[in-house]
Amino acid sequence: MTSLLRPAIVLFLILTAITGIAYPLLVTGVAQAVFPSEAGGSLIAKEGKAVGSSLIGQSFSDPRHFWGRPSATAPQPYNGLASGGSNLGPLNPALTDGIKTRVEALRAADPTNKSPVPVDLVTASASGLDPDISLAAAYYQVPRVARERSLPPDAVRSLIAAHARGKVLGILGEPRVNVLDLNLALDALK
């Protein structure tokens, strides 16, 4: 037993130094040299000020903007310090109540829109920081955004199409659009 103690301690220290210090430092060095923006959080700067990350969603409730997915983070939605989902089970009444409330808010902001609401627009994401919505969820919001901004709906639609991302090779990813990108482009229109 005692003859095993020295190798156990020394080997643990050596492997800690290699995997816990040398390895993360090496990866940091390479990543910072080759992918400085990505390794730094993919931040978006506007007029020299960081306005967000292209990977992290933000909370939108202004009818002039596209809205993102509901976020279950606390205390405020899209809290970068408290990622997580709602963890509501499929039969939990709180799930259906929450969806009802969100549908009402969408209908209230756009009373003439009678099309069915795309599911991702009223269900909370896993991270609470989902940057994307499905293309269906984006097109659903076109009438409202166009009216609020006095833009022709086709102009808003083509803006979505310009920012849309689809499946790569037919299998990787889903049809979606980054809400922050889309809203920045919308704000830049005029």
């Binding site: 997915r69 989902g85 499929p90 989902d130």
Partner: peptide
């Protein structure tokens, strides 16, 4: 072609 559909509660839009 515009959305993954299904049970999207607790899922990310990019993964569907």
């Amino acid at each position: 072609g515009l959305q993954p559909g299904g049970n999207m509660e607790g899922k990310e839009a990019r993964f569907g």
